[in-house]
């Protein structure tokens, strides 16, 4: 069965250089897909094309299709603003705005026309709760977001991404800069969140991919080498390079 969120022969170029080559991938609802592969193989490039973040890079061009809810997101009539509201994104480095904790979360909803104070309060609380941060910050919502620890900042960024109620969450190595405790918190969070969202996560941590993902896609030099159930890929990969990469003999 085809999912409502998938790519079809997607290629991404930086100038003439083809960083992502002809990739077709399905992202089933309520599941976590892990993108793994050696550094520079195009995972981030692929992920960034899913919410058209590559629009910001002038020399990046796209071939192929990305379907979200029956819509080709690169079609000329697509409203990028509306599209991005449906997709949350979190980067490797936590990057809170230089604003209060409250304002960080309220930022997105405000731009989507929510002016009502109590409604905003509610969104802030529920987003922070979803990101398992509420109890730690509820007494200091007015403080600068930069006063939080790195792990807290990352969960704040996840909460911020959730504030616009997206159906899709894109995570680019969200836990690679975090300590083990924060990492496991973020992982629990991802497992919790997949009940409502489809999640795509780039990770260099094989155990992490095995722990939290339902599907795994192995990228190598811009091509999709292997894709399937995480269990199968980790126990019985078809491809020899996949096997090598997963067992750490490579990359």
């Amino acid at each position: 069965m085809e999912s409502t969120f998938r790519t079809e022969n997607l290629s991404v170029f930086y100038g003439k250089y083809e960083a992502v080559k002809n990739i077709s991938l399905d992202f089933p609802d309520q599941s976590v897909t892990a993108l793994i592969g050696p550094s520079g193989c195009g995972k981030s490039t692929f992920l960034r094309s899913l919410n058209r973040m590559n629009d910001e890079i002038s020399q990046a061009t796209i071939k192929g299709k990305i379907w979200i809810e029956g819509q080709d997101i690169n079609a000329p009539d697509t409203d990028v603003i509306k599209l991005r509201q449906k997709i949350g994104m979190v980067w490797q480095k936590p990057n809170p705005f230089y604003k209060s904790i409250y304002e960080n979360i309220a930022f997105g909803p405000k731009y989507h026309g929510i002016k009502n104070k109590s409604m905003l309060d509610e969104i802030v609380e529920s987003s922070l709760r979803k990101a398992a941060l509420w109890d730690e910050v509820k007494d200091r919502l007015k403080q600068s977001a930069l006063s939080l620890s790195g792990g807290q900042q990352q969960r704040l960024c996840i909460a911020r991404a959730l504030s616009v109620n997206p159906g899709i969450l894109l995570l680019d190595e969200p836990a690679s800069a975090l300590d083990p405790v924060s990492t496991s918190k973020v992982e629990e969070l991802i497992i919790e969140l997949k009940r409502e969202l489809s999640i795509v996560i780039v990770t260099h941590n094989m155990q992490q991919a095995a722990r939290i993902s339902d599907y795994t896609a192995y990228f190598y030099l811009g091509t999709l080498m292997e894709h399937g159930d995480t269990e199968l890929i980790f126990t019985n990969p078809v491809n020899a390079t996949t096997q090598e990469y997963i067992s750490g003999r490579f990359g």
Partner: peptide, 27 residues
């Protein structure tokens, strides 16, 4: 400015001008 700051704002659906006036300039 860290690049992620601007991109986070875009990813939340803010336009370029909203990003400049509400995220970049205040920072």
């Amino acid at each position: 400015l860290p690049r992620g700051l601007k991109e986070s704002s875009f990813a939340l659906g803010a336009t370029r001008w909203q990003t400049i006036s509400k995220v970049i300039l205040p920072t």
